[in-house]
Design a protein around this nucleic acid. Structure first.
Lengths: 155, 155
DNA sequence: CTGCCTGCAAACTCTTTGCACGAAT
DNA sequence: ATTCGTGCAAAGAGTTTGCAGGCAG
């Protein structure tokens, strides 16, 4: 899904909820879609402020759930204290994350079998599956030798 | 693995690290192994205090990582703000969690395929898999009708 | 004795919220 | 005009840590 389509999706979602399309919300949207990797609320604030200095931390935290509900962003919690976000391309309902323990980089991989497995297991428990998430922790073999990762910069 | 074996494992691990086997650490161990379900640090504190009133929150938080490193406890982060713990029976390296969105109950299920999948995917990225975790969110079908879950008590 | 351990309380991180002003419809 | 949105700063939850005294080995 293109950035343009996502922006429209977000605007439409806001309007349908009776919410307003404000400059701050748009600035946060643009900042989010300019990112190339997973980002945190704090990083998003920094970049949104660069676009529109009037954006505050509170508004970022209030806007993120709206974008997730609108399916323009996905939320990823790798259990590191803070949540990560990334654009929801629509094609990644069945993805898993591989987190490098050396550089904290998050790789998204396709995991088409997950949905089937989640359903099978949930139904066995008498539950209806809502979502599933697979997270793999791994280490950079090649860079263990150099004692550090190539992408060790944390932005 | 029996409670006795786990206790010895914990004590041995402490000793090997040059750490001390204190009454507080043992009280926390006993409190943890008396639990029948996943528990939080705060719940553990309450129960450990019942065994030995001198146990403090700080010591619980300092002891939990030691128990996890000793492989007598496993840590489970379902992305709910607080971490959960449960005894590590040694047989559950390949388990997944099914979390009921209605009652927050956590079910542990066997997922033997995960290890294979984690390895396959990690190696493709040039990484060495360390661990993997599958989490499924689901809802109680039967109890959606009654608008609440049978286990809605939060301890 | 020595050095690890402890409780206490303060500090910290990430996120949420109350309030009065400001702006979209 | 209304009603929702906003920034600010304070509050909140969960967890970590500095410190001075205490206890294991």
């Amino acid at each position: 899904m293109s950035v343009e389509a996502s922006r429209e999706k977000f605007k439409t979602s806001l309007t349908q909820k009776g919410l307003r399309v404000t400059s701050q919300r748009l600035a946060i949207f643009e900042a989010a879609f300019a990112r190339k990797e997973h980002f945190t609320a704090e990083q998003l604030l920094k970049h949104a402020k660069a676009i529109d200095d009037s954006v505050s931390r509170a508004t970022v935290y209030r806007t993120l759930p709206l974008m997730v509900e609108s399916h323009v962003l996905r939320e990823v919690d790798i259990g590191s204290g803070e949540k990560f976000y990334l654009p929801d391309t629509g094609a990644n309902t069945q993805v898993a994350q591989v987190v490098c323990v050396d550089c904290d980089k998050i790789f998204e991989i396709s995991a088409p079998f997950m949905e089937w497995y989640g359903s099978t297991v949930s139904l066995k428990l008498g539950l209806k599956p809502v979502s599933q998430r697979l997270q793999v922790s791994a280490q950079c073999m090649a860079f263990r030798q150099h004692d550090r990762c190539p992408n060790h910069a944390k932005n």
